[in-house]
Design a protein around this nucleic acid. Structure first.
Lengths: 106, 106
DNA sequence: TCAATACCTAAGTGAATGCTTAAGTGATTT
DNA sequence: AAATCACTTAAGCATTCACTTAGGTATTGA
């Protein structure tokens, strides 16, 4: 999923889709590259679960899946919170130390 | 930055660092690969701003930068919220429609 | 029915990525 | 001073990536 978000083109596609569903050609419109290139990006986004698509007639409509976005968000948040809690605990620990001691490594 | 998070090895390194700072060799320890490979990943993480390092004597100590993590988190959150608000507005619009039109029953 | 539309598939290419091994560099220990 | 430790740097190599062009398949409007 982070792999899918790694490419700037795909991120712009996500931005576009966050403002509303779009067909493949609508998605492709702002980009200079060929349509197959867009379709390939779209496949990556779809496989990552970030985007779902459904075809009606000859038009494929693409929609963001915010659930998948939440997962990525959660992973980052967990690391950040983990680190910040650790800093809190360290702070409390240091506060509780009798003065005159050196800070522990690791 | 998403590019940096795209690699599983680098994500594991972030996970490790979210539990506390570490030297390069400590970071490398859980992995099968050679130390230079780890250093290369570390450089990517550093250039992305996700990790900061400082060298004292011959050991380099690596630390997470949660500010950078927050940025990635914010980007994702903005897209998600954007989409969800859009759904809200659509819902309100459909609710405000005069009856007799083709709209989902609520 | 004919042709345009909207998308899909395949094959190829050049550049970037993720490793490796080998050979340093500078700090610390003996 | 010599050996060890903790990285660093450099070069090379296989794979993956982000495209491209060329050709194909349903759908649909005239």
């Amino acid at each position: 999923m982070f792999q899918a978000l790694a490419d700037p083109t795909r991120r712009r596609m996500i931005e576009r889709l966050s403002r509303g569903s779009a067909s493949v050609s609508e998605l492709a419109e702002p980009f200079k590259m060929s349509l197959p290139a867009i379709v390939q990006h779209l496949q990556v986004l779809e496989q990552s679960g970030l985007v779902t698509t459904q075809k009606v007639g000859r038009v494929r409509t693409c929609t963001i899946d915010t659930g998948a976005l939440s997962m990525a968000e959660k992973w980052i948040n967990d690391r950040r919170i983990g680190w910040e809690h650790r800093l809190d605990r360290l702070g409390a620990f240091l506060d509780a130390l009798p003065s005159g001691l050196d800070k522990p490594a690791k």
